[in-house]
Every structure is written in C-alpha cells, then in structure tokens.
Design a protein around this nucleic acid. Structure first.
Length: 306
DNA sequence: CTCCAGGCCGTCC
DNA sequence: GGACGGCATGGA
C-alpha cells in the first residue's frame, strides 16, 4: 500500500482484498451515501470523506496526512485480508461461496460512541430506518462538515454534544422505546470520557483514549459485560460494539439473520442463540467476526433461510 | 389489514 | 435459569 498526493486529492495505491461498496453496504455502518458505482461519501471521526475506487486504487478528497491516516485506520487497510480469507476457508469450506461473493469486505474500525448508539438504535429496526435515525441525530446534534453533490453531511455528535441530548430529544428522533436506552448510553459515554481523562477536542483522539484507558485493560468478555451494564445493550449489541469498534474480531453477533443463515447452512433445524454462538466460536475462533460479516451480507443478499 | 425489523427488558415460573 | 409478552415506529 502506497499513498500518492496530488493537488487536492490523494490516491492510495495497491489496495488488496478491498471493495468500498461491499465494505460500506454490508450492514456494519450507517452513515454513508452512494454517489455512483464504486464511489461513496461517508463520515468518519468528524471527517467527511469522498472515496472513489478503481481496482486497487482508492482516490480520496484530501491531502492531509492526519485525515489519510484516519481513513486508513477506519477502513482497516493495513490488515491482510487475503490471509484471513484463506484461514477461514481452511477452517470451513462452506464459507467459500460467501467469501467469494463478497471478497472485498473489510471490518471497519469505527468510533466507539457512534457504534454503541447506532447499534442500540438498530434493535428491532430495518437498516434503512437505522440510517435515517443516525442521519437525523447527526443533523440535529452534530456539526456541519460540508456537502457533496448538494447533500449536506454532519458529524455524529461527539460526547459533549451527546451529553446535552434528552430523552424527549431522542423520542423526537423517532427512536421510540430506545430513547431511555440512548439516554443511559449517553450518561455512560460521559463517564467513560471522564475516566479516560480524554480532554482533547479531537474526536479521534478522544475515541482512542477511551479505547486505551477504559477498555484496553479488559478482555473480550469483560468488555461485553461492561457494555451490557448499559440499558438496552444485550449480547448482540455488545458483540457488535466489540467487533466493529473495540477490535475484537472474534466477536460473533447473532441476530435474526445470522440465526436463520446458520440454521439453514449448518444446523438444518432450529437452533438457539447460545448454541449458535458456541458453534461459531468452535469453528471460526478468533476469526468469528469476519466469518459473521461475510455470512451476514451473503445471507441477506440471497435471502438465505427465508 | 397483518407481519416483521442487525433485540432487550421486566415479569413470570 | 429459561420462556414469553411488550415495546415505538415504519416498511413490505
């Protein structure tokens, strides 16, 4: 991987096993818009990115090293997915089809507070509606970042902004019964930020500090249990935060889709959530999160088990 | 109209 | 500990 800078854009070259469309559309994040084939606008850590991919080249709308590094981290471009895919197929050849269909998925390294709030919102909701609510939350409480093709983009609110959001505000954003859950998560975020001693104005640095100073001392299970103290966070949401934000790539979130997919591919019968979690841990081990995402997107696109 | 959505909580046994 | 109804809102 190599970065070349031009007047007002840069190109990341030699990108392997990555597809921007598959990565953004596979259901792990909610804050993006498709502009054209292989071309997306999205918000990440207070940055508005426009990204266009052509084969193994990614063109981006900045020459700022800091932003480029945020993007490389966010898109997980330094991880060798060729190795991961080979390892998964070695463990289970049944995954081959799902992996080959979505060969370019990367697991994003998302901001902690956005991941937590987004997946609390996600319960009992369709992805399109989750995206609408995240957009509304950002427009109302985030910060204007710019516009692309006439569409305005706002940052996901930072923790200081989140601390000012009331239960009624959340209800106005059509979050329904999740409103008090989001309020509880807001309070916890303020607490995490304070205990991480994260004083910076830079949302990327604050996020890193929370991950390092609050969660890095925990293992995966401890982090999950800590997250489950938040109202509205159960195993599934906690696993999503672990996988998509806290770098626990072994986390295997079991939702209605994964349940259906695993039952149809492996069990050939109904199976409990716990049974599926144990099965996935035994089979995929520390690669569970990757397997989950290949399966999730593949299953959804092909309406597996429905 | 009914059914379901990247679930979880409170309550019951 | 496991089972079950309820839950706001919107889309199919």
């Amino acid at each position: 991987m190599k970065v070349k800078k031009y007047d007002n854009y840069s190109i990341i070259e030699d990108v392997k096993d990555f597809d921007i469309g598959q990565t953004l559309e596979c259901g792990q994040c909610f804050h993006f818009n498709k502009i054209d084939d292989n071309e997306y606008a999205f918000v990440s850590f207070n940055n508005l990115f426009a990204v266009k991919q052509k084969n193994d080249e990614i063109m981006i709308n900045t020459t700022d090293d800091k932003k480029i590094n945020v993007l490389i981290d966010y898109l997980d471009l330094n991880t060798n997915y060729g190795h991961i895919k080979k390892e998964l197929i070695k463990r289970d050849d049944l995954l081959r089809e799902a992996i080959e269909a979505n060969w370019g998925i990367h697991i994003l390294n998302q901001e902690f507070s956005e991941t937590l709030m987004s997946f609390i919102i996600s319960q009992n909701k369709q992805i399109q509606h989750i995206r609408k609510i995240v957009k509304g939350l950002s427009e109302r409480f985030g910060e204007f970042l710019g516009s692309i093709n006439g569409v305005d983009y706002y940052s996901f609110p930072d923790i200081d902004q989140i601390s000012n959001i009331s239960v009624d505000d959340y209800k106005e954003l059509k979050t329904g019964f999740r409103a008090p859950y989001l309020k509880d998560a807001s309070d916890k975020l303020v607490y995490y930020k304070a205990s991480a001693n994260a004083l910076s104005d830079d949302i990327y640095i604050v996020d890193k500090k929370i991950k390092e100073n609050v969660f890095a001392g925990m293992n995966e299970e401890m982090a999950r249990e800590e997250l489950k103290k938040i109202k509205g966070v159960g195993d599934k949401v906690a696993n999503c935060v672990n996988l998509f934000s806290l770098s626990y790539r072994g986390a295997f979130p079991v939702d209605v889709w994964i349940k259906r997919i695993m039952e149809s591919m492996y069990f050939k019968r109904e199976a409990s959530k716990e049974e599926i979690e144990k099965f996935a841990l035994d089979l995929y081990g520390e690669y569970g999160g990757y397997a989950q995402q290949y399966l999730f997107f593949f299953g959804r696109e092909n309406n597996l088990g429905k």
